Simulated assay, not measured.
Amino acid sequence: MRELLERHYGYLFEEELLNEIEAVGVCKKVRQGETLMDIGQSISAMPLLFSGAIKVMREDEVGDELILYFIEKGDTCAMTFSCCMGTGKSEIRAVAETDTELLMIPIEKMEEWLSRYTSWRRFILDSYHTRLSELLETVDTLAFMKMDERLLKYLRDKAMVTHDDVIYATHLQVAHDLHTSRVVISRLLKSLEKEGKIKLNRNQIKVLDL
Score class of each variant (00 low, 15 high):
residue 34 E to H: 04
residue 34 E to W: 03
residue 35 T to F: 04
residue 37 M to W: 10
residue 38 D to R: 10
residue 38 D to K: 10
residue 38 D to E: 10
residue 39 I to Q: 01
residue 39 I to Y: 02
residue 39 I to M: 12
residue 39 I to D: 04
residue 41 Q to P: 03
residue 42 S to R: 09
residue 43 I to A: 02
residue 44 S to R: 13
residue 44 S to D: 13
residue 45 A to D: 13
residue 45 A to M: 03
residue 45 A to R: 09
residue 45 A to F: 10
residue 47 P to F: 14
residue 48 L to I: 07
residue 48 L to K: 00
residue 48 L to N: 02
residue 49 L to S: 05
residue 50 F to N: 11
residue 50 F to Q: 03
residue 50 F to V: 06
residue 50 F to W: 11
residue 50 F to C: 10
residue 51 S to E: 12
residue 51 S to H: 00
residue 52 G to R: 00
residue 52 G to A: 09
residue 52 G to F: 04
residue 52 G to N: 04
residue 53 A to C: 15
residue 53 A to L: 12
residue 53 A to S: 15
residue 53 A to G: 11
residue 54 I to L: 12
residue 54 I to M: 13
residue 54 I to W: 01
residue 54 I to Y: 12
residue 54 I to Q: 02
residue 55 K to P: 03
residue 55 K to R: 15
residue 56 V to M: 09
residue 56 V to Q: 01
residue 56 V to W: 05
residue 57 M to K: 10
residue 58 R to V: 15
residue 58 R to H: 10
residue 59 E to I: 08
residue 59 E to A: 04
residue 59 E to Q: 06
residue 60 D to Y: 10
residue 60 D to N: 15
residue 60 D to V: 08
residue 61 E to W: 06
residue 61 E to R: 13
residue 62 V to P: 01
residue 62 V to Y: 13
residue 62 V to H: 12
residue 62 V to A: 09
residue 62 V to S: 14
residue 63 G to R: 06
residue 63 G to L: 13
residue 63 G to F: 15
residue 64 D to I: 02
residue 65 E to Y: 02
residue 65 E to I: 04
residue 66 L to A: 14
residue 66 L to V: 07
residue 67 I to F: 10
residue 68 L to S: 07
residue 68 L to I: 08
residue 69 Y to G: 01
residue 69 Y to Q: 05
residue 69 Y to W: 04
residue 70 F to A: 05
residue 70 F to Q: 02
residue 71 I to L: 06
residue 71 I to Y: 00
residue 71 I to D: 06
residue 71 I to V: 03
residue 74 G to R: 04
residue 74 G to E: 07
residue 75 D to K: 00
residue 75 D to A: 08
residue 76 T to W: 01
residue 76 T to L: 03
residue 76 T to H: 03
residue 76 T to S: 07
residue 77 C to K: 04
residue 77 C to A: 12
residue 77 C to H: 01
residue 77 C to M: 14
residue 77 C to R: 01
residue 77 C to I: 11
residue 78 A to Y: 01
residue 79 M to T: 14
residue 80 T to S: 11
residue 80 T to A: 14
residue 81 F to I: 13
residue 81 F to P: 04
residue 81 F to L: 15
residue 81 F to M: 14
residue 82 S to T: 09
residue 82 S to M: 08
residue 82 S to F: 15
residue 83 C to E: 13
residue 84 C to M: 14
residue 84 C to E: 00
residue 84 C to R: 05
residue 85 M to L: 15
residue 85 M to Q: 15
residue 86 G to Y: 10
residue 88 G to R: 07
residue 89 K to I: 02
residue 89 K to C: 06
residue 89 K to P: 13
residue 89 K to R: 11
residue 90 S to H: 07
residue 90 S to E: 01
residue 90 S to P: 03
residue 90 S to T: 10
residue 92 I to H: 12
residue 93 R to E: 05
residue 93 R to P: 05
residue 93 R to H: 05
residue 94 A to Q: 01
residue 94 A to S: 11
residue 95 V to R: 12
residue 95 V to L: 14
residue 96 A to S: 08
residue 96 A to F: 03
residue 97 E to Q: 15
residue 97 E to H: 12
residue 97 E to N: 12
residue 97 E to M: 15
residue 98 T to C: 14
residue 98 T to I: 08
residue 98 T to A: 11
residue 98 T to P: 00
residue 98 T to K: 08
